[in-house]
């Protein structure tokens, strides 16, 4: 924790000098923007995606005066583009950003310390160890889950564009770039099914992600939620405790 900077002289509400906190700048602005854009896009994509697979009750009147399914699909495709562009930007930032920006894109499986860290964190979640270790970036278990999520996200983008190419046509760039998906699953019905299952993968991730972020924020005495807004990770215990 050599990067940690000491915050001196902060006063608490009683006018007493608060504990000295360690804070580290972890998440750079592009990473934070990506996180929230991604989150918003996922909410739109999951909702509209669900209604594409299981449409709302039929609309009354003439077809010429309705475009409900069209709007739902439009929202889905637009949010898909936003997510994909944001993902590209995020990948770019993995190359130019700080070391924390790179973390979720690879797993250091060759690193014994990291591997034992995964086990240790698993033990922490199984209530087997008393104190969590503190990490500036993701803890090893979080790192693993985050990496799996990124793979899931990439799968959704690839299958999503492949499905989009069905409507865009065989001459579209979407088909040229992503049509190979149909070499794996010749029947696009399977691609629909996998795309749909991957959505549930994201929902599972979101449940775990939000729970652990809130929990660690409280129990591990290190900031997670505010870190994704300010970029600073604050370790709430005194520096030399």
């Amino acid at each position: 924790m050599t990067e940690a900077t000491q915050i001196h002289g902060v006063l608490d509400s009683h006018g007493e000098k608060a504990a000295e906190l360690q804070s580290v700048y972890v998440y750079e602005a592009p990473v934070r923007i990506w996180h929230w854009v991604n989150a918003a896009a996922i909410v739109v994509l999951a909702t509209t995606g669900y209604f594409i697979a299981s449409p709302l009750p039929s609309t009354p009147g003439e077809a010429s005066s309705q475009f409900l399914m069209g709007y739902i699909r439009f929202a889905h495709f637009s949010a898909g583009y936003v997510l994909a562009v944001a993902l590209l930007m995020r990948i770019y930032w993995a190359f130019v950003g700080n070391e924390h920006a790179k973390q979720i894109f690879y797993l250091p499986v060759w690193d014994r310390k990291w591997l034992s860290g995964v086990l240790y964190e698993a033990g922490w979640y199984a209530f087997l160890v008393k104190q969590p270790k503190k990490y500036i970036g993701h803890n090893p278990l979080g790192h693993l889950v985050m990496h799996l999520f990124m793979l899931n996200l990439a799968f959704l983008v690839v299958t999503g564009f492949a499905l989009y190419s069905e409507g865009a046509g065989r001459d579209s760039w979407q088909y040229k770039l992503f049509g190979w998906v149909f070499a794996i699953w010749p029947n696009s019905q399977d691609v629909h099914t996998w795309h749909h299952l991957a959505m549930w993968g994201v929902i599972l991730f979101v449940i775990i992600h939000i729970y652990t972020a809130v929990r660690e924020d409280i129990v591990s005495r290190q900031s997670l939620i505010s870190s994704m807004i300010s970029g600073e990770r604050v370790f709430r215990d005194e520096a030399d405790k």
């Binding site: 449409p55 077809a63 010429s64 309705q66 399914m69 069209g70």
Partner: peptide
């Protein structure tokens, strides 16, 4: 197809 886009389905 126009009925699909309009969200008008046989239930």
């Amino acid at each position: 197809r126009p009925h699909f886009d309009a969200g008008q389905f046989v239930e």
